[in-house]
Amino acid sequence: MEFVVFWVPAVLAVGCGALVFRFDSMARATFSLLASLLCTGGLVVLLGLDYLGVVVVLMMTLEMSVMAVFMVMYMMNPAGLTPMTMTHNTRAAAVVCGLLFALLAAGILSAPWPDRRGRPPDDPTLDLGMSLMGPQMLTMMTLAMALFATIVATVVLATRRGRYDRLGDGLRARRADDPVPGGVGR
């Protein structure tokens, strides 16, 4: 049973992950990545972290749906009807990744791993919550600031019109040149 519960999602995760870069169709690539990440989330649940596993599953489902839309918007050949190679430096990358995997596997198999210290709490989610609101609060606040900075950065990057478009090169225009004027007193 343990064999099936671990190895089926494990093989699916790596297999679907590899297929992402083999598919011509962008929708297939996106959903292959989703399958891979769902298996990863399932394995996190298997490791006893129910809450985080479900968070990974839900977040990835939403993220990949958004990604599919962007893929179709931006890719030159989203449906894969005219197959074309969109890769570079494949051989060198394969060598680098093979070597890295060999190195990591050698380390994993030969490292003298320590014995388990303590035992898992009855409710790991409670433990996580208490940790984030206690000793790890700085981590949480840093993440919050990073998320806020990302909101600002993405809006600035993605918007078509900047302040120079609105107020002129010297930013001296008295009235902003907006396609749809609005706001209080403008």
Partner: peptide, 20 residues
């Protein structure tokens, strides 16, 4: 987290960081 340090929540916090 599961196999080496289940008593502390540091492994779980690392997952939160990776997901973010």
């Amino acid at each position: 987290w599961r196999h080496f340090a289940p008593a502390t929540a540091d492994g779980q916090v690392l997952i939160i960081v990776a997901v973010t």
